[in-house]
C-alpha cells in the first residue's frame, strides 16, 4: 500500500515517446498559428476584389 502511494516513474521509452508526441503537437500548433495571418490576409484580399467588381 505504501509503495503504491508513490507515483512510479515511467520507463524511458514511454516517457520519450510521450515527449516526442508533445513536441510534434506543439510544432503543428506553431505552424498553424504562424499560417493564420497569411490565410486571413489572402481571404481579405479576395474580398477586396469582389467589392471592386460589385462597384463596377
Amino acid at each position: 500500500m505504501f509503495l503504491g502511494a508513490i507515483p512510479r516513474r515511467p520507463s524511458k521509452e514511454v516517457a520519450y515517446k510521450q515527449l516526442r508526441s508533445h513536441l510534434i503537437v506543439m510544432a503543428s500548433c506553431v505552424a498553424a498559428i504562424r499560417a493564420a495571418p497569411y490565410i486571413l490576409h489572402f481571404l481579405n484580399r479576395d474580398a477586396d476584389r469582389l467589392e471592386l467588381t460589385l462597384e463596377l
Binding site: 524511458k12 516517457a15 510521450q18 506543439m26 506553431v30 498559428i33 493564420a36 486571413l40
Partner: peptide, 30 residues
C-alpha cells in the same frame, strides 16, 4: 519553451511545452 503570436490585432495565441527530466514527465499547453 513557449511561443505566442498575434493572429489579429486583438487576438493572440500561443503554445508551450515542458520536460521534467528527473521525473521523466512532459506536458504541453495552449
Amino acid at each position: 519553451a513557449n511561443y505566442i503570436q498575434s493572429v489579429t490585432p486583438n487576438l493572440s495565441m500561443g503554445t508551450e511545452i515542458f520536460w521534467l527530466g528527473h521525473q521523466r514527465k512532459s506536458g504541453i499547453g495552449f
